[in-house]
Each structure stands twice: as structure tokens, then as C-alpha cells.
Design a protein around this nucleic acid. Structure first.
Lengths: 248, 248
DNA sequence: CAAGTTGCATATGTCTTACAATTAGGATTT
DNA sequence: AAATCCTAATTGTAAGACATATGCAACTTG
């Protein structure tokens, strides 16, 4: 592992990059211990704080984990689906909120992806998945539920649907899309009538999954997308109206 | 921004977490300047190196950028689609390679997601997208192409297909799925006959997109998935056979 | 002899102090 | 007025020290 002396980037960034490349390329394998900070600072000819900054960068990406004590050190981390989930959700959420992604664009992407797992979910759904979905549907029908709790239950419902496809890679990819939508969804105020419609659509989707009807699942999701889009557009229109009123 | 004194985690991790929460919640907005390292070390009652480790963690996630000089400092970064892409690809690639995700599982997820953008791509594909796809198809037909170059062109083809859907969120989500497959795809040796079949399938997909035939695009992708699965299974079977031979 | 205890070596975590490098903006000089 | 230099602020890097955690071996003790 060598550094490029002509680079103008921070030393800690260069060192992190060198180690990252070694991990990605497989020269460092899972659970292998990196040299100690003192050794690394020798080999790279930098001070220990600089090495530490590099290691913290890698730790932030879950590429390594550190352990104190006699047999401690930095170890190549086997990144878990859970860690990957949470990183992707953080990134997706910020990407949406910082780049003024419209409600329509995010919604379209989300449901396009979700419909992609309809056939697999219809084929493989287990009793557990169906039960989880039914439980969320029941919760969504309870009176006195806050809008936020309703949205959270909605996310849980869709999460169960995605997991029913039985493909962890698919679940991972979709977690970001679904959860990143939540802040946008939380802007919507659901009237009792809205909720009733959504609960009915959720019920239809669960029914279709239960009878392993892929096409029914797809069209149920389609209807749900359109319902949600209408709700979102209403909210945006109201906001625009209020903003215009405040201006003039 | 306060720290939890009962936490056993590293101070730098706690500080990074506190700042990250402030960014995600919107208390710190894009392009806003964070307090200087000296000020942060005062407010958190830690030393400057500890603050710096926290800032490097955030920089690794593209949440902040730093600038030297008189008016320098750490600024909340507007995360771009490109940065989000590359982070997701890194994470996805490692997730697949470190968790022994099978070729079948990854392939299934990839094509399920890709078929999801078939209707949108058929509706919105521009001449540019079609031209990009045709160019890659032509490249794939050239003799003397290495397997790696063939795979890279394959990725470019699929990337154009995804971009044709005209939804940046969809493109972002799919970039990880498609590109993370590349190391697995690179294990495959493509015979001339294999390549001819794949090129023909690519041509069929491009044709379907050109005539805005969503169903044709979907079935073309379906056929491509099955072709690829067969190729992958052959490779795995050969590997298993060689491994058995070496053992016995 | 077995079980618990102590102490040591090693590693990361944190602090302190210092200096180098970079940069914007003002002061100075031509 | 324009070009130049200087200065202050800020991040980047270094070096050394101490604190803390932890595995392991040696030691003590019942």
C-alpha cells in the first residue's frame, strides 16, 4: 500500500483510500487485522493522529471495526445487511431532502421498485409475512392514530411486502427507497376517509398476495400509487396556495 | 447539541452522531458553516483531534466538506447524485462479496429492479438513450473484446436503459444493483456463441424500446435474465467440479 | 492440583502543545 | 489606482504523554 506523492488531497483521505482499495480488491479479507496504528504511521510516514483520522473514515463506512486492548486493533468488517440498510437510508433521505426531489419523482421510483417484487412476493410469501401485513392493516384502522404513526405503520406494511419476496438483496435495495420517502409522506395529513381508502387498498394487496395473485398485487400497488399521488398533489397545491397568499 | 454522558461509545462517534442528527433533522442546513474545530472542542469539552476524528467520519459520508484558510471551515454538503451513486456502489459491492450472496439471488434482484423501469423507459426513452444503447451493442459485437470489456459495455448498456426511465431516483437506486453485479459477472467467460446470443437479446430490447413497447422490453429483459442465469450456473458447476477434483 | 487473582504488555482512546500550509481580506507601497 | 505584502483565522500534520481496556501469563491460595 503506497501513497501518491503528487496528490493534493489530505493524507488521511489518501491513506483511507489506499486501505479501502485493499479491502475492495480482496487483498485484505474479512476479519483480518490491520497493522496497529503505530505500525501504519511508520509505513505511511505520517503521525498517529493522521492514521487515526483515516481509520475513522473507514469506520464511518463500516469497512472496519476497532477493538481496544491487548489483542485489539482494526479489523476488516463483514458489512451486514443491517449496516448497509441504515447507511443507504441515511444517504437516500438526505439525497431527497437536499436536492429538491419532487414528491412525484420519488413516489414513481418507489412504486416502480415495489411493483418489481410483486411476482416474487406472490410466489414466496409466508404466513409470517401475511400476518405482519394484516397486523399493520389492523393498526392503520384504529381511530386516534397520529399521522406519523399511520405513516410508520405504512412503512412497516410495505417492508413486510418487500421482505415477502424472499430476496435479501432486493430488500436491501428497496429499504432506501421506501424509508427515504417517509419524511415526504409525513407532510401529508390523512383524513379519516383517506385512511379508509388506503386501508382498503392494503387489504386488497394482502388478499392478492394470500391467493398468490401476482397480477392482482401489481394492480393493487398501482392503485395505491395513484391514491397516494393524489393526496400528495393536494397537499402541494394547498401549500402553494398558502405561499401565494402570504406573498401577496 | 449535547452528548450522552452514559454512553460508552467513542467520543468522536458520539460527536459525529450529534452533528449528523442536526444535519438530518434540518437544524443545520446546506452550505451552512459549522463552528471551527476549536469552538467545537470547547462546546463538547473534548480535544481538537477528537473533534477532527468526528468530522472525518462525517466527511466520509459526504455529509460535510472542509476548506482551509481564513474563511474556511466545515460546511454542510449538498450530497450529489454522483456521490450517492459511488457510495452505494461501494457498499453494495462489498455487501455482495462479503456475505456470500449467490449469483442467483443477485441476478434475480437485479433483473426484478430493471424490469421495473421498463414501462417508464419505453414511454420516455430519448434518441440519445437509444443511440447509447446501440453504440454499446455494436461494441459488444466486435471481435477481440476481452471478457472484462464486454462486461463493462454490458453495464453501460443497462445503465442507459435505466437512465432512459428519466427518473433520477430510480437511476440512483439501480446503479448499486447493476454495478455491484459486475464482479460476479466478471467471473463468467463468454464464448463467441454466448456473446452473439446476448447481443441479439440486447438488440431486441433496444428495438422494443424504440417502438415504445413496454411489454416487449419486459420480456426481452426476462429472456436476458434467463440466458445470464444459465451462463452463471454453468460457471458455478464447473468451479464446483474443479474443486471436487482438487480435493479428491 | 485447580481456581481465582494479580500484574504486565499491548493496543486504542484522548489530551496538550506546537508548527505548517492555505486563504481571504485589509494595509501598504509603488 | 493597482499591485503587493502582511496578517489573522482556520484546517492539516506532528510528537509526546497519559488514560483505559483487554488478553494472557505468572502467581498465589484453598
Amino acid at each position: 500500500m503506497q501513497l501518491d506523492p503528487s496528490s493534493t488531497a489530505d493524507l488521511s483521505a489518501q491513506i483511507a483510500s489506499a486501505i479501502r482499495d485493499a479491502i475492495i480488491s480482496g487483498r485484505l479479507i474479512v476479519d483480518e487485522r490491520l497493522p496497529s496504528e503505530a505500525e501504519l504511521s511508520d509505513t505511511f510516514n505520517v503521525s498517529r493522529p493522521t492514521v487515526r483520522e483515516a481509520l475513522k473514515r473507514l469506520a464511518a463506512q463500516s469497512l472496519i471495526r476497532t477493538q481496544r486492548g491487548a489483542t485489539g486493533g482494526a479489523f476488516v468488517n463483514r458489512i451486514s445487511f443491517e449496516e448497509a440498510y441504515s447507511q443507504q437510508i441515511t444517504t437516500s433521505t438526505l439525497l431527497l431532502s437536499m436536492n429538491a426531489v419532487s414528491f412525484e419523482t420519488a413516489l414513481e421510483a418507489r412504486y416502480a421498485l415495489e411493483r418489481a417484487c410483486a411476482p416474487l412476493a406472490a410466489e414466496r410469501r409466508s404466513a409470517d409475512h401475511l400476518a405482519a401485513m394484516r397486523a399493520e392493516i389492523h393498526r392503520q384502522g384504529q381511530p386516534g392514530l397520529t399521522d406519523e404513526a399511520f405513516c410508520a405503520s405504512d412503512v412497516a406494511f410495505h417492508r413486510a411486502l418487500v421482505d415477502a419476496a424472499g430476496n435479501p438483496v432486493l430488500s436491501y435495495q428497496l429499504a432506501g427507497a421506501v424509508e427515504a420517502m417517509q419524511p415526504l409522506m409525513n407532510m401529508i395529513t390523512f383524513t379519516a376517509r383517506d385512511r379508509a381508502r388506503i386501508v382498503a387498498l392494503h387489504g386488497g394487496i394482502a388478499d392478492a398476495l394470500e391467493r398468490q395473485d401476482a397480477q392482482g398485487t401489481r394492480s393493487g400497488l398501482q392503485a395505491l400509487e395513484e391514491e397516494t399521488r393524489t393526496l400528495g398533489q393536494d397537499v402541494m397545491a394547498q401549500r402553494a396556495a398558502r405561499a401565494a397568499e402570504a406573498d401577496g
